[in-house]
Simulated assay, not measured.
Amino acid sequence: MSDIILSTSGLTKQFGGFTAVNDVDLQVKRGSIHALIGPNGAGKTTCFNLLTKFFAPSRGKIFYNGRDVTGRRPAEVARLGLVRSFQISAVFPKLTARNNIRIALQRKRGNSFDFWRSERVLDALDEEAMRLIQAVGLTGYSEVPAGELSYGRKRALEIATTLALDPELLLLDEPMAGLGQEDIHRIEALIRTVSAERTILMVEHNLSVVANLSDRITVLARGQVLAEGDYTSVSRDPRVIEAYIGSGDHHVH
């Protein structure tokens, strides 16, 4: 198997006359934490939506595990192991944390919402659900309705429901958005833990998180790759500093 799990070539997306993503070649190494950063309006979210098949590219190709997935539907690429974590909307607010995870585990087995299966099957799901609850630090909250969890714990639950689908490549869209410092540390530790056996690609605004977690960083500006490398090299790159300052966005340091 190649050490590149996800790659794009010439990935481009135009909306009307506006080019949001322009000729992006991306290579994500298997087993790494790869961050996609850039000032506001750089095209990060559009790029992410192309990779997760929510938009079709205007041109260019996407390869996952050496397979051309450019024309595949979101559900198909998810079954292949490329799964994106949705923000909070993915969680059923009235169901407990444990039942939210159980539903995701049932989906993974292809028998979604089949609540009246044998006790034995449900017990096995319960065991796995509790393992995931522990893995994301929600022990003690398993019976709390998801809607009553704090924002940071909802985020942990949402990552757990994504992990229940057992992705090989986990795509995180701004996992720290809206979180306070304490929650950021918790989710950061969680991402590091779950990265042990999978690849992670994340779009993230919080640059100290990017510095702490990422093996490799791709910087986008105006829809194009501006720089790539580890945090130290990209944060010192004059073009990157200028792109951040010129956009009125926060500093790269």
Rank of each mutant, 00 (worst) to 15 (best):
I133S: 06
K44A: 13
R192Y: 09
R72D: 15
K94Q: 12
S32E: 15
S142V: 04
Q87R: 11
H250G: 06
V210K: 10
T193W: 09
F92W: 04
A164G: 11
L80P: 04
R102F: 10
E197W: 02
D183I: 05
S89M: 07
L125C: 11
I33C: 12
E76D: 15
S235C: 10
S7G: 13
G17M: 08
R84I: 04
D230L: 10
R30F: 01
Y231C: 00
E242S: 12
Q14N: 13
N111L: 07
A135P: 00
R239C: 03
S208I: 12
G110A: 08
L105T: 08
K154E: 07
I217D: 07
R239M: 06
I88W: 09
T19F: 01
S32C: 13
T162A: 15
L171P: 09
L82R: 04
H253N: 14
D123E: 15
V83H: 03
T199K: 10
N111E: 13
P145V: 07
A160D: 12
S142K: 01
G66W: 09
L179R: 02
P167N: 09
E127C: 11
R186G: 03
R72L: 15
I5S: 13
L105D: 03
S233K: 07
A156S: 08
R222W: 13
R30Q: 14
I217H: 12
Q106M: 15
R236Q: 14
A189T: 15
T161N: 09
R72Q: 13
V83T: 11
K61Q: 15
V21G: 08
A129N: 07
G223Y: 05
M1R: 02
A97T: 14
H34D: 05
S85D: 03
I5P: 12
K13W: 01
R79D: 00
L105H: 10
H185I: 11
L171Q: 03
I184Q: 01
N100Q: 05
S142E: 14
V210C: 11
C47N: 02
V203P: 00
V136D: 05
A20N: 02
L125K: 02
G71I: 01
R222D: 15
T12L: 08
D23G: 11
G10I: 00
F18E: 05
I245K: 12
T8H: 12
P57F: 08
G110W: 05
N111H: 05
F86L: 00
T45S: 06
R117V: 10
R72S: 13
F15P: 13
R67C: 11
E158N: 10
L157G: 03
K154I: 00
A20Y: 04
R236I: 05
P167Y: 06
E188C: 06
R155Y: 00
V136E: 07
G246E: 08
E188I: 02
R107L: 10
T161G: 11
A75P: 00
G229C: 14
D230E: 14
L132F: 02
S150N: 02
N100P: 03
A227T: 03
Q106A: 06
N40K: 09
M202A: 03
E204G: 03
G140A: 08
V203G: 01
G229W: 08
M202T: 01
G43N: 04
